[in-house]
Amino acid sequence: MNTSEFISTSPLKMIPNASFTWKTPSNIALVKYWGKSDPQIPKNASISFTLNNCHTITTIDFSLKDSSSGVDFELFFEGKKKAEFKPKIAEFFKRIEQYCPYIFDYEMHIHSENSFPHSSGIASSASGLSAIAMCLMSLEQALHPEISQAFINKKASFLARLGSGSASRSIGGPLVVWGAHPDIEGSSDLYGVPFPYQVHSNFANYKDAILLVDKGEKQVSSSLGHHLMIDHAYAENRFQQANENLSKMSQILQNGDVNAFINLVESEALTLHAMMMTSIPYFILMKPNTLEVIQKVWKYREEQDSQLCFTLDAGANVHLLYPEREEKSVNSFIESVLSSYCEKKQYICDRVGLGATQL
């Protein structure tokens, strides 16, 4: 792997103070990645819809220090200091220090907030780490104005990946591929790339309603789940299957076969959780209401001749994907039937978005 293009070699003109704010979205994988090697290299390629309403807004205030004795930062999440979040961010800064050496020269105050519950299976680390990466790249651009926006996005995805693999897919949109794959031109294990082919109009303006079945902390972190793939009995078959499914998904997105899309997306979701249930130690992140929702979705799709489908991340919440033309009927179904399976009847109506936005 050649990472030299991300190492800054030009002299930087330091500035005393700066502040940048970015809003970056979460994403929902259609073909999942589960299993990685160091440093944050996926065992298989993945593709995701970028979301819009589920996002993180992060501001970083940079102040030049007298000495560069180490990374110096304070972290505030939704207005409060979050000491428990600091180790992960500190580890992230350690991983990127050779690519962003200027972080040693600044004291950083990081203020972050989510539009959705943290650690409930809506990829908060994806939106959170990508937002920090974009703020860092805004500083790098201020110190080195010659760099292009294309390079900024590419390096931000590269940096975000070192904090959270799925964060590499939250910089752009509406469809992003992460992981080297022979059928996806320009794809890389080091950063996410926009899906490079023409997407059929059937998948334009797709909707995603997230049913908050369980808003609590996950019982098992994604990091631990990925680690359990190392000696998993079915790991190699899974990696091969996922890459084959990405080839299929690429064709589906181009030819507009929504029924094939439904079958593949739901199969991927259930396979992800099957890998969790067959690891050693094994674990189950779905809740009884997760299964109830899935059964209701299948029944609704059959009775209404609908193209509604579900997918899952590494948690209990259910993402409902559906075409824009079904928005009114699906939202009525959610409100009248599915909301009763959600915690306090809460759900989020989202849609496919375009990625990071500077505020």
Rank of each mutant, 00 (worst) to 15 (best):
I7W: 11
T9Y: 12
L12P: 06
K13T: 15
I15H: 03
N17E: 12
K23V: 08
P25N: 04
S26F: 14
A29H: 07
V31M: 03
P42Y: 01
K43L: 14
S46A: 06
I57W: 07
T59D: 09
S67N: 15
V71E: 11
F77R: 00
P87D: 05
E91T: 07
I96T: 02
C100P: 03
F104V: 01
E107A: 13
H109S: 05
I110Q: 04
S112P: 10
E113C: 11
S115C: 09
F116S: 02
P117T: 03
S120T: 12
S125D: 03
A126D: 02
S127K: 04
G128E: 01
I132L: 15
M134H: 07
C135H: 00
C135V: 08
L139C: 00
H144C: 12
I147S: 06
F151L: 04
N153Y: 12
K154W: 10
K155S: 06
K155E: 01
R161Y: 05
R161H: 01
L162K: 11
S164W: 02
R169W: 08
I171L: 05
P174V: 09
P174M: 09
P174A: 11
P174W: 06
P174S: 04
L175V: 05
L175M: 11
D183Y: 14
E185R: 03
E185H: 10
G186E: 10
D189M: 03
L190F: 12
G192L: 08
G192F: 07
V199P: 11
V199S: 06
H200V: 07
H200C: 10
N202Y: 07
N202W: 06
A209S: 11
A209F: 02
L212R: 04
V213M: 02
E217F: 08
Q219H: 14
Q219A: 13
S221I: 11
H226R: 08
I230N: 15
Q240D: 07
Q241T: 14
A242D: 05
S247T: 15
Q254A: 12
D257M: 04
D257N: 13
N259K: 13
F261D: 01
F261E: 00
S267F: 07
E268P: 04
E268N: 10
A269F: 10
H273M: 06
H273R: 05
M277V: 11
I280C: 05
Y282T: 13
F283T: 05
I284P: 02
K287M: 08
P288H: 04
N289W: 09
N289D: 10
T290A: 08
L291Q: 15
L291C: 10
V293T: 02
Q295R: 08
V297K: 08
Y300V: 03
E302H: 15
A314T: 12
A316S: 14
N317L: 05
V318I: 14
H319G: 03
H319C: 03
L320C: 00
R325I: 14
K328V: 11
S329T: 14
V330G: 06
F333R: 03
S340M: 15
Q346M: 01
Y347H: 08
Y347N: 02
I348P: 04
C349S: 09
A356T: 07
T357S: 10
